[in-house]
Design a protein around this nucleic acid. Structure first.
Length: 617
DNA sequence: AGTTTCATATGG
DNA sequence: CTCGCCATATGAAACT
């Protein structure tokens, strides 16, 4: 059972936290195509009812195909309506827009269908990557109306001391030209179901293509739900530990906002080492000039460049860089901005990366430096279960390429070691270089001879990535295992890949002499598509794991609090930890079968139970 | 003064 | 001849 949901902005909106004092202006009732009451009537708004904590909404029951099972009705209390149907799958335009208000009201959903994320997947699959994916755009495509562009993404909203002056994003978009969100939602959903079925039929070369794509859609929606919940719950963050850590590393903060004590001292010593100038160590240009004055010419001030330089300032500069980074990116002001009530609450953006990985908006949640993770401590009586998928991408390669020999090696706990034994004379480091080189398209350095060895023993796996590279180089598209499609070569320049080949000279006489795409650009594109088939499949593996894990934890106190590409963190009562460990292992095994059936490839999880995130692994 | 790009760091 | 993938975030430098 599916319930289509259109939040009614009369119930929410306005300054955050300010609940409505009264009904206020609202959308007209949806002029619902299948014959529900259009005016006041049994299902019409009863404006005298008190508005619930998640606001009011239009709701309409559907079957899984999208066939309405009854009229749309207006409810003053979305939260209560969702509570009454705890097993239902919700259909809404955007989880990111609709779910947070429910979470703030203390309500969780079982499952959902995120129309916009699905639309993006289907558009990409149809070679229309980048076309507007919003509900209004989908509706316009369906009705032949001009397609409106998507609204610009919201800016990051630091929860820390933002003082709640921000307004809810306006959603749905202002009704224009008879746009009725509920009809649009239902009709676009039904159209999506049809397109999903067609996409499966149209890919006879891919066994199971339809099932896979439906799986991807489900995983993407589940990911959106989890991302909203994780952003809502937040990662336990001990501000006191963080501050102690900062003082330990950086020294006392400067009262006037300047660099902390140890950083200032280092800057002074660096100046001394260069013979007392007014040097700012944080300025690459100045550091370069300072070295040049001493006869040392450097291509850059990157850490690995400096490490090869014999000069007394070098160790000081390296230390300065490391600490300066922490001060500016994860120092006192970061803490004040992003941590509130003992939780770090970043905004996760599912599908924010073309490969299907999540991105984040604000707070840099996916780049928390290892040293700073000491501040991530479980609540008293609680603990963390941290699960990390080791060597995920090479194992994905083994699984998707169906290279039987490599798959056998990927059944081992240490795949690189197994590979080394079979084909690299026991040299594990060389096996690793070869495999990474194959997945990233590296051809120089030590990779070239190692790659040849890999080709000799695992030709099937090698040709899988090389085929993907060739498709990319020649301007084609590749797909992940479940069917996520890579963007076309022209993204950015040439909006949605409208075949622009009719213009071989290029836009303004700057055409490269050797063809429509220069050699270097084509090869870069090849490296991208080569990596895409692996990285995107790894992302959907992780998404499926997350979704299955959420399912098995629902009903317990455990909560998912962090997810970073191939690593998941669960916060749970100490007594529940064994259950959570078992659940994550079981989810891992189910994920393997769900995606790859009876492959011999294993996906070992490194699971640790720790009170502090920094202690994991 | 405001905006964009570069350089450099972090993460996977 | 060259050639490693995907990101976010910061401050400095360059640009409008």
């Amino acid at each position: 059972m599916l319930i289509a949901v259109v939040p009614d902005e009369a119930g929410v909106g306005g300054p955050r936290g300010a609940l409505p004092g009264g009904p206020g202006p609202s959308h007209p009732p949806p002029a619902d195509g299948a014959g529900s009451p259009a005016g006041p009537g049994p299902a019409g708004p009863d404006r005298s009812a008190p508005i619930g904590p998640a606001g009011a909404a239009w709701l309409r029951p559907l079957d899984d195909a999208g066939q309405p099972l009854g009229p749309a009705r207006w409810s003053p209390d979305l939260a209560a309506a969702v509570r009454e149907a705890p097993e239902a799958r919700l259909l809404w335009a955007s989880t990111a827009e609709c779910y947070p208000r429910l979470l703030r009201a203390g309500v969780r959903v079982a499952r959902c269908h995120d129309l916009e994320l699905t639309e993006a997947l289907l558009l990409g699959h149809a070679g229309r990557w980048g076309q507007p994916k919003a509900l209004a755009a989908g509706w316009a495509r369906l009705t032949g109306a001009p397609v409106p562009p998507d609204p610009p993404p919201r800016a990051a909203t630091p929860p820390g001391d933002g003082q709640g002056t921000l307004f809810e994003a306006s959603w749905p978009p202002p009704a224009a030209g008879g746009f009725d969100p509920m009809s649009a939602l239902v009709e676009v959903y039904r159209d999506q179901q049809a397109r999903l079925a067609a996409a499966g039929r149209d890919a006879p070369a891919v066994p199971d293509a339809g099932r896979r794509l439906r799986l991807l859609v489900a995983a993407e929606s589940a990911g959106a739900v989890i991302a909203a919940e994780m952003g809502h719950d937040g990662l336990p963050w001990r501000v006191d530990v963080h501050r102690d850590l900062l003082i330990d590393l950086l020294g006392e903060p400067s009262p006037v906002g300047g660099p902390p004590r140890r950083l200032a001292e280092l800057a002074a010593r660096i100046n001394e080492a260069f013979g007392d100038q007014r040097l700012h160590p944080e300025s690459p240009a100045e550091v370069l000039r300072a070295f040049a004055r001493e006869g040392i010419r450097l291509p850059s001030t990157r850490a690995w460049v400096l490490r090869g330089v014999d000069h007394p300032a070098v160790p000081l500069l390296l230390e300065f860089k490391e600490l300066y980074r922490i001060w500016t990116a994860h120092g006192w002001s970061w803490c004040q901005q992003w941590v509130r009530e003992g939780r770090f609450r970043p905004e996760y953006v599912p599908g924010g990366v073309v490969s299907g990985r999540w991105a984040t908006r604000g707070g840099g949640a996916l780049q928390i430096p290892k040293v700073v993770r000491r501040a991530v401590q479980a609540d008293p009586g609680w603990t963390f279960v941290v699960a990390d998928a080791g060597q995920l991408e090479p194992r994905i390669l083994a699984a998707v390429s169906s290279d039987a020999r490599m798959a056998r090696a990927a059944g081992a706990g240490d795949m690189y070691a197994a590979l080394a034994t079979e084909a690299f004379g026991g040299d594990r480091a060389r096996a690793k270089v070869a495999l990474l080189g194959a997945m990233y398209g590296q051809t120089g350095g030590q990779a070239a001879p190692a790659l040849a060895a890999l080709r000799g023993s695992y030709p099937t796996a090698l040709s899988y990535v090389e085929d993907a590279a060739r498709v990319g180089e020649t301007g084609g598209l590749v797909r992940s295992w479940l069917g996520r499609t890579c963007p076309p070569p022209s993204v950015g320049a040439n909006a949605w890949g409208d075949p622009d080949a009719a213009d071989p000279e290029g836009p303004r006489g700057e055409a490269p002499p050797d063809g429509p795409v220069s050699g270097a650009a084509a090869r870069a594109r090849g490296r991208f598509t080569r990596n895409f088939v692996i990285q995107a499949t790894a992302a959907e593996w992780a998404l499926a794991l997350l979704a299955l894990l959420r399912g098995s934890l629902s009903g317990s106190a455990a909560e998912l609090v962090f997810f970073q590409h191939d690593e998941v963190v669960v916060h749970c009562p100490v007594a529940d930890a064994p259950m959570v460990v078992a659940a994550v292992q079981a989810a891992c095994e189910r994920t393997r079968r769900l995606l790859f059936g009876d492959t011999p490839v294993r996906f070992p999880l490194d699971v640790s139970v720790v009170d502090c995130y920094a202690e994991a692994k």
